[in-house]
Amino acid sequence: MTDNLSLINRARAAFPQITPAIGAFAAVDEQGGDSFAAIRDTAAILTATNDLIPPLYQRADATDERVLAWVDALASSSVPNQYSKVPYLKGGPSLLLLGPTGVGKTYQAYGALRRLSIIGIGCAPAAASITDVFAKMRPRPGVDSEAVFASYAASKLLFLDDLGAAKSTEWTEEVTYRLVNYRYEHQLPTVFTSNAAPKELGERVGERVASRLMEMTQRVVIKGADRRLGGAA
């Protein structure tokens, strides 16, 4: 338990601007829960997110007010576990971040996942660029493409980066449609990013996908210069 508490304290100290759902674990026992389970589950949430986020974005924190509002909406819809009192994601809205290359869409998205983990929301997130999804699903010996698809499609929370970035083929269009449609039909919260302008989205991802994205997401257009060219992370 000491190691788990140390992990939690270090994570919270690095992001003091984020208020955790369980501020004092001793209070969990007073509420009829199990503080040991609360510490264990909170540490597991942090570890899962740490393992998911690439090194470049390990310090990412969402700063856009619209993204922060989305995080708050997910946190508000979460339901505490009966014993640990740790809140777990049960649904919520999806988010579409649009804007040109380098304006910070991926940073904001990983920052949102980081915020949820510091708050202590159990959501077992998955994250990948759409090109990585294609690469992992591409049929070849020893690969169960449908199992790979399911690992993303059925995730409680998914971050799907760079929609429309890959060269369009009949197969990539089918995979993208199936993935977005599954999330749409099952009302699973998803963060999407795309370099496409809002009016170009249908051309980049297909009209069927664009239609579902427009209905299922809160859209945030991020503007600005390419931060990478200026040396920003």
Rank of each mutant, 00 (worst) to 15 (best):
D132E: 14
L5Y: 10
S35L: 08
E207S: 13
A126W: 00
A147V: 09
S155R: 03
K85L: 15
A37F: 13
G202W: 09
S35F: 04
A73N: 06
P54A: 11
L116S: 00
E30T: 13
T42D: 01
M214I: 15
K199T: 14
L201M: 13
A165Y: 12
D161W: 04
A11V: 02
N81Y: 02
L96M: 15
P54M: 10
P189A: 05
D29Y: 04
E203M: 10
P80N: 03
S155D: 01
R178P: 04
R114M: 07
V209K: 02
L5C: 05
S76D: 13
R66Y: 07
R208E: 02
L74I: 04
K167Y: 14
V79T: 10
P55N: 07
V71I: 14
C123M: 14
S117C: 05
P100I: 10
I39Q: 14
E174I: 00
R59P: 01
V148N: 10
G32Q: 07
G99F: 07
L179T: 13
D132N: 13
V86P: 07
L5M: 14
P100W: 06
N50C: 11
P87N: 06
L68F: 05
F149I: 04
L96K: 09
Q31T: 04
A150T: 12
G23P: 00
R40F: 11
T172N: 08
A210H: 05
S151H: 06
E146H: 11
K85T: 09
A127E: 00
I118N: 02
A73M: 06
S194G: 06
G104W: 11
F15I: 03
Q187A: 15
M137D: 00
A232H: 14
T217N: 12
T176W: 01
S78A: 15
Y182R: 15
D64F: 05
S129Y: 02
A48C: 09
Q31P: 03
R12M: 03
E207N: 14
R10T: 14
F149A: 08
S155Q: 03
R66C: 03
V175P: 01
V103C: 08
D132W: 00
A109G: 13
D3Q: 14
V28C: 07
L97H: 13
P93I: 00
K223L: 12
S76W: 02
A38D: 06
P139H: 06
G206R: 02
M137S: 04
A11F: 02
V86M: 12
Q82L: 12
T106P: 14
R10M: 09
S155P: 00
P16K: 08
V28M: 05
G99L: 09
P93K: 01
L74Q: 04
R138T: 09
P20M: 01
R227V: 07
S84G: 07
S168D: 12
A24Q: 11
G32R: 04
T63L: 12
E146C: 02
V86Y: 05
D34C: 08
Y184P: 10
L95D: 07
D226M: 08
F149P: 04
R208C: 03
E215K: 15
A153H: 01
G104M: 10
Q218F: 09
Y88D: 07
L160D: 06
Q82K: 12
F149T: 03
P198F: 06
F149D: 04
D226T: 03
